[in-house]
């Protein structure tokens, strides 16, 4: 039997983020769902990133510590992971780990938060061969199933990725209004995909997690080959200064274009490059998500 994906994600978070960061995660998440009907649950100490508006000034005065009010969402949130599980997700991330394991960790992180807040989690995933849906449920076992499904789908044997198709499918299939977390890689977003993303964002609250690709010119790549074609990229060519320089330029241009597009839509993006920096990336994503606001 496989070890629990959730336990693994938990262990990784504990490994890479110290306690103060983890409490920030708690605080931020509680304010992802602002503007919704909330029911007061209890008080807890203020943590960095909490909405200042949540501070209970009277209780703070009484206790001498800064306390914030915690709420339970009155209505359970539907958090749908939209994972681009095509073949490219099995390729390598900048830190040398498979991108799929980074995607899995990001998904698991959301899973832990969803479970802690007794929300519901669903999954939409797919590639060129087709897209699939697991409807939202709140059980730990269901979250585990979602992670397992991602792990099984995002392999080198999978069909090539189809981000636009997946976005279009999600626009149809995800009916219940909620939060959609798009976990994809550095694939280019074509106009159709961009339109689908825009439609999705009108229906739902969309966050985007990009799993970065290892660059072909990276020094840590060992006889790299393209995962789609199997074509080897010769070292003498990929490390050539002219190629490296040109690639750096085009990468910066593409990133800038994507950031601009997402900015016009009001979608916050977190770009994951390594397991070690995942938690920080996510906190940054939550902060930006708050500020792009609704």
């Amino acid at each position: 039997m496989h070890a629990s994906h959730l336990d693994q994600v938990h262990a990784k978070i504990n490994l890479h983020a110290h306690r103060r960061v983890r409490s920030v995660l708690d605080g931020n998440y509680s304010s992802i769902f602002k503007g919704r009907s909330m029911e007061f649950e209890d008080l807890r100490e203020y943590a960095q990133g909490d909405d200042v508006g949540d501070i209970d000034w009277k209780a703070t005065a009484r206790s001498g510590k800064v306390l914030v009010r915690r709420y339970i969402a009155e209505r359970k949130n539907n958090v749908t992971l939209l994972v681009n599980t095509g073949r490219s997700m099995a390729a390598t991330a900048p830190d040398g780990s498979p991108k799929s394991s980074l995607a899995l960790m990001a998904a698991g992180l959301f899973g832990l938060l969803v479970l802690r807040h007794r929300d519901l989690m669903g999954l939409t995933w797919g590639d060129q061969k087709g897209c699939h849906l697991l409807p939202p449920k709140g059980a730990r076992g269901h979250v585990e199933l979602i992670l397992n499904t991602i792990a099984k789908a995002a392999t080198a044997q999978a069909a090539p990725a189809d981000l636009s198709g997946l976005l279009a499918y999600a626009g149809q299939a995800v009916r219940k209004r909620g939060i959609v977390v798009l976990i994809t890689d550095d694939a280019d977003l074509d106009p159709a995909g961009f339109a689908a993303l825009k439609r999705l964002h009108l229906q739902h609250e969309v966050l985007m997690v990009s799993i970065a690709d290892m660059e072909p010119s990276a020094a840590t790549a060992r006889s790299p080959l393209d995962i789609e074609t199997g074509v080897l990229i010769p070292d003498a060519v990929r490390r050539h200064p002219a190629v490296v320089a040109e690639q750096a330029a085009i990468r910066a241009r593409k990133r800038a274009a994507l950031t601009r597009s997402l900015g016009t839509l009001g979608i916050a993006e977190g770009r994951v490059e390594a397991e070690a920096t995942m938690v920080h990336t996510m906190i940054g994503l939550f902060e930006r998500h708050q500020h792009v606001g609704r």
Binding site: A90, A161, M214, P224, I227, I233, H240, A245, E246
Partner: peptide, 19 residues
């Protein structure tokens, strides 16, 4: 070796073709 995705941009670079 190291499997990489989304290399088409890289492979399409004029410098890449030249080199």
């Amino acid at each position: 070796g190291t499997a990489l995705a989304n290399t088409s941009r890289f492979l399409a670079l004029p410098a890449f073709g030249r080199v």
